[in-house]
Design a protein around this nucleic acid. Structure first.
Length: 278
DNA sequence: AGCCTTTGACCAGCG
DNA sequence: TCGCTGGTCAAAGGC
């Protein structure tokens, strides 16, 4: 990546849109979609997350403008660094609180602060269930990137996890927003913390957002992350007509595109020797 | 039995 | 126009 402002990273967001525009969605989301915690909290959370905390992440929904390693690094530095060494890579799950952007991409970088023995491959610490659907060696193969999808049926959220050769998660990028609450309890560990998952989506939104959102979302996040579909490789930008069963998928559109598109693609593009899809 | 992970291949966009 | 990178899907295997 390393695509500075000029470099249109796959997930980079064009600054052409204003945050408001991003929110251009119904009123489900409030501009406060970004939650951030104070350093202390971050630290605590991070630490906690080391154990497993569903919410110990800095949710930067937008802030990945030109999100290049540098940018992210900086970001991380600000939040994480100050908190001393983070024990584990924090994740920025796209909380159901639709931040309202077309595509929310949260980038998380844990720079190799190795402390984390938890750098597991499964970033589901956020309380959601993820399914790995691919892995690729990017950057010359130095950094394997894993692709995860939210297992929820209608949830278009995806996340990319980059790891260094050490196996440490160097970056986690979230795309889209969850249309659902976190599963009640999938992993006992998370279950304990994510009791919030039990709340209704709406509540969760409000609650979560209120709690975390109120913390403070410095303007840094309000950055214009419109996550233009165009930015995302464009491939996605096709038809988000995936039925949008969820009305609140304003941000998932690009993802949905894929989702809906996938079906077509497979059938068309992929030479599936076997019958339709499995 | 079901779900998730792994690996390879294909496709699309961009330089 | 060609090549490269990135992203996703699908099949098989394992847990």
């Amino acid at each position: 990546m390393a695509s500075p402002a000029a470099g249109p990273a796959p997930f980079a967001v064009p600054h052409g849109l204003s945050p408001t525009a991003l929110l251009g969605s119904p009123g489900l989301l409030s501009p406060t979609g970004n939650f951030e915690m104070s350093h202390q909290q971050a630290l605590a959370q991070v630490t906690a997350q080391a154990v497993h905390s569903p919410y110990s992440m800095i949710n930067q929904s937008d802030y990945s403008l030109p999100f290049s390693s540098t940018t992210t690094s900086t970001l991380a530095s600000q939040h994480v660094s100050s908190s001393a060494n983070v024990a584990s890579p924090q994740e920025i799950p796209t909380l159901p609180s639709h931040t309202g952007n077309s595509n929310i991409e949260s980038t998380e970088v844990s720079h190799g602060l190795q402390t984390s023995a938890l750098t597991v491959d499964k970033p589901d610490d956020d309380g959601y269930n993820w399914r790995k659907y691919g892995q690729k060696a990017v950057k010359g193969g130095e950094y394997p990137r894993s692709y995860y999808k939210c297992t929820h049926s209608s949830c278009p959220v995806k996340k990319k996890v980059e790891r260094s050769s050490d196996g440490q998660i160097t970056q986690i990028i979230y795309r889209g927003q969850h249309n659902h609450q976190r599963p009640p309890k999938r992993r006992s560990k998370d279950a304990g913390l994510l009791n919030e998952a039990d709340v209704s989506p709406e509540k969760e939104d409000a609650s979560t957002r209120s709690e975390q959102g109120s913390q403070d979302h410095s303007g840094k996040f309000e950055a214009s992350n419109d996550g233009g579909p165009s930015a995302s490789r464009g491939r996605d930008g096709g038809d988000q007509t995936s039925g949008s069963s969820d009305s609140d998928d304003q941000g998932e559109e690009e993802m949905k595109v894929k989702g809906g598109d996938t079906g077509d693609r497979n059938g068309n593009k992929r030479h599936v020797p076997a019958p339709a899809q499995r």
